[in-house]
């Protein structure tokens, strides 16, 4: 199962320290998500797009991701201009387009796309394991990090078991429809996955105990911040602060 679609590449973001990426994206996403002043949001989107384009990813794949995100935004555009209370701009028989509704929908569109483009460029370009490693160094709760590590490790294993069961269903000419038989079959399939994965997790734990597991994962290698990492941290930090300053009127 190929999950990390954007993690392979040679751009500056692919080579960056995952800790820098986690910190800069968190700050950027928090500021952008709470902003609502259009110039600030336009700057955010510009920053997001810059990160995305400098990551040199397969634009067709990125486009598909963005389309999925924007389907929900499109759905909001069908409602918000009419349902938001405010001053009417135009009205058709019983529907009135409100100024506040348009600006709300516009703000959401900008925010969502800004954060999503930045997160594809920053987080999407790291492997999950290097992010988990970064989380350890950022002092996330240990058990949560372990959970993350094991969960991701076993997704592809469980997915293979799932495909095996699906193949055996296909061999027996199973066809999905809205009927009790379909639901029962899928329920038993899932039940089987739960049982097998439970047994697998017991074996994993036994293997760990056998090797002297005492509740800690020791990290052998540590990250070293390079010049380019500091640069990225400073530049992203500066622009994020700039978005915040525009939003909360420090600069007028």
């Amino acid at each position: 199962m190929h999950l990390e679609e954007f993690a392979e590449g040679k751009s500056l973001w692919h080579r960056m320290d995952p800790r820098v990426k986690i910190i800069t994206l968190s700050a950027f996403a928090m500021v952008t998500a709470t902003a609502d002043y259009l110039p600030a949001l336009l700057l955010s989107l510009g920053l997001g797009l810059t990160v995305l384009f400098t990551a040199k990813l397969d634009l067709a794949k990125v486009g598909i991701r963005l389309m999925v995100v924007n389907t929900f935004i499109l759905f909001l555009w069908l409602f918000l201009p009419f349902t938001t209370p405010g001053e009417g701009l135009w009205s058709f028989s019983f529907l009135t387009v409100k100024r506040e509704g348009i600006s709300l929908a516009l703000a959401i569109t900008l925010k969502t796309n800004a954060i999503v483009t930045a997160s594809i460029g920053l987080i999407g370009t790291s492997s999950v394991f290097s992010l988990v490693h970064g989380m350890t160094h950022l002092k996330m709760p240990e058990k949560l990090v372990h959970l993350f590590f094991f969960c991701y490790r076993y997704i592809s294993v469980i997915h293979e078991e799932y495909l095996l069961l699906r193949t055996s269903m296909k061999v027996r000419s199973f066809r999905a429809g809205t009927n009790l038989h379909t639901y029962k079959t899928f329920a038993y399939l899932l039940g089987m996955l739960f049982v097998r994965s439970y047994e697998r997790s017991q074996r994993i734990y036994q293997a760990m105990v056998l090797r002297g597991f005492n509740g800690t994962f020791y990290t052998l290698d540590h990250f070293h911040m390079r010049g380019s990492d500091w640069c990225a941290l400073l530049i992203m930090g500066f622009f994020t602060a700039f978005v915040g300053a525009l939003q909360w009127g420090v600069l007028i």
Binding site: L147, C151, Y154, I158, S197, Y205
Partner: peptide, 17 residues
Amino acid sequence: PKDVPEVAVLSSVFFVA
């Protein structure tokens, strides 16, 4: 500590499901 692999692998099932 004993529950960690169990919860994690069950989480993988939820993800796949």
